[in-house]
Design a binder for these strands. Structure first.
Lengths: 339, 339
DNA sequence: GAATCCTATGAATACGTATTCATTGCGTCA
DNA sequence: TGACGCAATGAATACGTATTCATAGGATTC
């Protein structure tokens, strides 16, 4: 058996502000001020304290600070564990928050059924803001979190209106743009492939697409892939092929990638036999080998709005809804060579 | 009559264990025990406390708990803000940690130069474990964090040996597998495309590839893409084409996707004119439209090992290095129809 | 030259919980 | 029956910091 595992500096407890105070010959209060309100400390003292702190390797304890000051610099995020889209959102939001001096405490869930348990854990952390990837979170769950006096932002769920703040892209008009583009290309029959029909985002996208198509006399049957994943999209190919439409509008890029490959595996050529559109504007949509026509969400802009709401404590009592327009990206998947 | 579910609204400060104690007619200590050591409380009392807590909407304060108990359930993660690969790792690690009752506090950085600042912030949070996406973190920065008595794990940087624990795939043997496969396919000349040559992972992969190729008398010049991104890969096409090799081994999938599209845009057919391999085994590599030959990292397994090390407090004083083998995925990008 | 104000600091307290120590009541064993 | 052990609880304290209140000079004003 190996005995005392001697780590230099390992067993020693981290230095506290009191330790630094003694080392620098000042009071603990002065040390605290040096780090959290330097302007209240004279130049000379600040210097001495800083040196003492450096000598002892002192670093303020964020937990104690949060406890006392009743506010943390931590923003919570409840996000699905899977999904290309959410990974990108998370990445963008993290960047924006970091730029505002906030850290992100991540709570992920695999199954929507876990959300309640996760939210209970979230409550234990007195986060200064909460981001909810709400396509997967029920409205009543959203409203339960509003109790917190900290800003709460639902990402991509405009239906959350009134309960919490929200930031989202205009799903309906985005889909109208896509549908309109397809009609321009000569599309006369089409199909919509959604991910999960119970999700409000999915519904809004279908609604927009169906209305625009309807305005041009084109019917738009709905097919449910069952998940927002490549595989789910791939598995839809047969059902789509059976309907033999001019075009297929897919509710999200990730599913669309699967749909495309599924269709091509059945010998259907895109766009010659069938046009395909997506939604989200994932990075992969722009890859030359894919070049998907899609509605690009301005993720960075959305993330910036979200971060601003999360940082602004006043927004807690005044829920704000931000809706941003996406823009059309036209790729090879809808470019008919003939007509 | 469910009147009790009413919680005094927004502005009211959250209930504390003392509030619950009064409500339930017990001491604060008993309330604390009810939540953190229920077995020390009698059945009846536990019941009464739970009801009082529910009535007041009480939730334990994680910060206060961490402060007093000197340990948090929070694991820190320092990860680059961009990159498909890291997003996947993060996603996997988050899942594994959630299963172990840990939350993830995310610190992201855009530029390696920010790492020092980020690490300073990390130190403020007394995280119970720290995950370092260390391909971008210097060894001296790693060792500086070892001071913490909490487990520190470098993900994908075996060179961290001795300083902190590490979890990584066997880069060198993985690349040997890929190279060997290419030679079997009849490859006689080849090129290696790395991301950033100063990164140890990049070096290890090139080393493995070059050695295996060398064993078969094939030279392997190195080309640096300049970043681990699609665009960087796309931009390499010209330099690759100029060398006109049989095969190009790319150091990471994300770059490989770019290389493929870049080459095809120049009229080079894959795999007929040129074979391509990647490394990482990103989900996109398995997409039918891409079907890249690559070395698949067992991300879930790596994440599990990382999570276990991060949770095991003993691992702090006993750095452990875990190296796992990846497996070869053979896709269309190396399948020669003729020869 | 005193009244006043401002700056820099220290002493003391509170944040919400976990934990030690002490106390009580009760069942058990000799 | 008395000594003892155990289970359940309460009182008190400590975790590390921010902040209020008080104090001592020193500069400023009339």
């Amino acid at each position: 058996m190996a005995g005392g595992t001697e780590v230099p500096g390992g067993g020693a407890r981290p230095a506290t502000s009191t330790d630094v105070a003694i080392e620098a010959g000042v009071s603990q209060a002065t040390v605290a001020r040096t780090f959290s309100a330097p302007h209240l400390v004279s130049e000379g003292t600040r210097q001495r304290v800083s040196e003492a702190a450096a000598r002892l390797g002192y670093v303020p304890n964020a937990f104690a600070r949060s406890l006392k000051s009743q506010q943390s610099n931590v923003v919570g995020a409840v996000v699905p564990a899977y999904g290309e889209y959410w990974q990108n959102v998370l990445s963008a939001v993290t960047r924006e928050l970091a730029a505002r001096g906030r850290q992100l405490l991540l709570f992920s869930f695999t199954d929507p059924g876990e959300v309640d348990d996760v939210l209970d854990i979230v409550r234990q952390y007195r986060v200064s803001g909460l981001l909810l990837a709400s396509a997967s979170i029920r409205p009543d769950q959203l409203s339960a979190m509003r109790r917190q006096s900290s800003p709460t932002v639902a990402f991509n769920q405009p239906a959350a209106s009134g309960l919490v703040s929200s930031v989202s892209v205009d799903n309906e008009s985005g889909c109208r743009l896509l549908a309109s583009h397809l009609v321009d290309q000569g599309c006369r029959t089409a199909v919509f492939v959604g991910g999960v029909s119970s999700i409000s985002t999915d519904q809004a996208r279908y609604r927009g697409a169906a209305r625009e198509m309807g305005d041009h006399g084109v019917a738009l049957p709905y097919i449910e892939a069952g998940a927002f994943s490549y595989d789910a999209g791939y598995g839809c190919a047969e059902r789509i092929a059976r309907l033999a439409p001019d075009a297929v509008m897919v509710g999200s890029d990730e599913v669309a990638f699967g749909v495309i490959d599924g269709l091509e595996s059945r010998g259907i050529r895109i766009p010659d036999d069938l046009a395909v559109t997506g939604f989200d504007g994932l990075p992969q949509a722009a890859w030359a080998g894919i070049d998907l026509t899609t509605l690009v969400q301005p993720t960075d802009l959305l993330a910036r709005h979200a971060a601003e709401l999360l940082v602004d404590t006043a927004s807690a009592s005044r829920p704000t809804d931000v809706v941003v327009d996406g823009h059309l990206r036209i790729g090879r998947t809808t470019k008919r060579s003939d007509r």
